[in-house]
Design a protein around this nucleic acid. Structure first.
Lengths: 204, 204
DNA sequence: TTTAGATTTAAACAACTGTTTAATTTCAAG
DNA sequence: CTTGAAATTAAACAGTTGTTTAAATCTAAA
């Protein structure tokens, strides 16, 4: 059929699920919570999504995609290396400004149920990212544009300086009840700071 | 009475609670889970700890203390500034090597229930840490030992470079099923890298 | 208007949740 | 040995959980 009604109900369930799962986690969210807030009968959730777990996986996958898709593209790009770094961090800050709750959500769900999400994580082939970056770094070292540096350290620095401030910020926002303009202004400065940090660390 | 038996049972409940709460979170852990694994009657948990929530708060407070007590002491110390930074990061790496699951646990529980833990967080007076660090930095700038730098940026850099690698590491450990020696060896290198990073960023 | 299929509903299901009860056992002090 | 408080137990409590059922409603095509 695919009428407006179907997608309406389905989308309402998806929207509320997104909000509640990200906020309260898998075990902290009940199907009845979702149904009530979406103004939908409880049975509709199973009707459209089969099970709580299937619905959750949909949201989880979506969240992971938001977090890594853009970055994957940038890492594999042929931008000049320093531009690449700049774009990389820029892209993180951009995405995380709009989705500051996603990192803690994804990290925590993996933490609480590593077994079940292991297969899912491997499907994304995280070592591929590692390899691509390694190749690129080797070329840059050959060209003499950067000094020798272990991939792991560079990767950890970039991820840490880009993601963790938003993990703290997302919590700060929840605790204070509103987006702290101060803090997010400071983060805007911190972005330049982080890029400078990383750039200085790899300059030959 | 305070016989060996009482503390035995009590401690067994505490030990299992610590493990399960940190691993599965508040909502993911049931009193019956705890009782079963501690080989204790369900009622004993409420008998000794009044409620699931009281028990959880005990574990949560304990975890927060592990995460910040030592650091507070170091930040307030009168060590030479560069030594202070070194000791600070060193202390983080030391503590997090033994408790790699704590950061994600604490951050996530705050994330999922900010309202209830707000009072608890304010009790630790996080802005105090901020003030102490600000004063110290001002003095160092006057002395000309470091260049002018916003506290927030310095603080975020230290926290990010120290904590986030272990958040990733804790998950990596869970996913691979054992402590990845490789990764933790890389982290040992990363510690020096981080200190160098930070030192370079504030050198006049 | 009839009809077949999709959608929606209220109700029930068994299992699990945190907590309390009342009865029983344990055990050191008298 | 008796006693009284502390410790432990099995059972029950009311409420919630994810999921399923069977009946009712809606809707577009014949």
């Amino acid at each position: 059929m695919k009428t407006t009604k179907e997608t309406e109900v389905k989308d309402r369930i998806l929207d509320v699920s997104r909000k509640l799962f990200v906020e309260k986690g898998y075990t902290g969210t009940s199907i009845r919570d979702i149904a009530t807030e979406a103004e939908v009968n409880v049975a509709m959730v199973n009707y459209y999504f089969k099970s709580k777990h299937d619905l959750f996986e949909m949201i989880f996958e979506e969240s992971v995609n938001i977090l890594i898709n853009k970055i994957f593209g940038i890492i594999r790009s042929d931008l000049p290396f320093y531009d690449l770094l700049n774009t990389w961090v820029d892209s993180y800050y951009d995405m995380l400004s709009k989705n500051s709750q996603l990192p803690i959500f994804v990290l925590n769900e993996i933490h609480q149920n590593p077994g079940h999400l292991l297969e899912f994580i491997n499907r994304r082939n995280p070592s591929m990212l590692f390899g691509v970056l390694q190749n690129r770094i080797n070329k840059e070292i050959e060209k003499g544009t950067i000094k020798e540096i272990p991939v792991m350290n560079l990767l950890l620095s970039i991820l840490s300086l880009s993601i963790f401030p938003f993990v703290l910020g997302g919590i700060l926002t929840l605790v204070t009840g509103e987006k702290s303009e101060e803090y997010y202004a400071a983060l805007e400065k911190h972005k330049k700071f982080a890029v400078q940090f990383i750039t200085d660390a790899i300059k030959p």
